[in-house]
């Protein structure tokens, strides 16, 4: 029960269905079975009250704590630390230190399919499940998630419990590939040649 999972909705738009899917009792039970004793949720600006209501709706009455013992998290303004049903849930709106958090304190990331969040996880080599927000119009999330999944860099699902539970099983039994190093000598040469031209 020592593992920590991060759920991240991105900074721009909130993704209530993702939060709600993760807080579904079937998913929290599964996470416990897989050894995750702590769920960290970044839910986006202005979502704190809804978040607390969702926790109560799905998991029952909870007690709030002052801190969770992870330095990066405890620094965050308006952090909610909740103890409920044998699991600890830390919720917050937004943080500039999310890269640091992922690198040092997280074992599995469940993320919305924005490129920034995908890269934050892949660059530090964490297991990643991506949840596509199909309610967004004219948006490239599905295409991007498919591309990365084809390359075996992540597991892509939609915001429902069945798909997420299946992906959690896969995250235990399958290995992902590592993303190529970003440093590309040819690209650096191109920049150099253009600059001195």
């Amino acid at each position: 029960m020592n593992n920590t999972v991060l759920v991240t909705c991105g900074a721009t738009v909130s993704f209530p269905r993702l939060v709600e899917t993760v807080l579904d009792r079937s998913v929290t039970e599964k996470l416990k079975v897989l050894g995750y004793g702590r769920i960290v949720i970044q839910y986006g600006r202005g979502f704190s009250d809804t978040f607390l209501q969702l926790v109560e709706k799905h998991l029952g009455l909870f007690t709030e704590k002052k801190s969770c013992g992870i330095k990066v998290l405890d620094k965050i303004e308006n952090l909610k630390v909740i103890s409920v049903d044998g699991i600890e849930i830390c919720g917050f709106e937004f943080s500039h230190d999310i890269e640091k958090l992922i690198a040092n304190n997280i074992d599995l990331v469940i993320s919305h399919a924005g490129t920034g969040s995908i890269l934050d996880s892949l660059r530090v080599g964490k297991k990643l499940i991506v949840v596509v927000n199909d309610t967004l119009m004219d948006n490239h999330q599905q295409l991007i998630a498919d591309k990365f999944e084809q390359q075996k860099l992540l597991w892509s699902v939609h915001a429902n419990t069945e798909e997420l539970l299946r992906a959690l099983d896969r995250s235990e039994n399958e290995e992902l590939l590592k993303i190529d190093n970003t440093y590309n000598k040819q690209f650096e040469k191109l920049l150099y040649n253009v600059a001195i031209d």
């Binding site: 000598k185 040819q186 650096e188 040469k189 191109l190 150099y192 040649n193 600059a195 001195i196 031209d197």
Partner: peptide, 18 residues
Amino acid sequence: SREAGPLTKDKDNVGGRM
């Protein structure tokens, strides 16, 4: 377009040189 291919010796040493 400019070729990204082989460069002259001088230019090969990227980074730090410029």
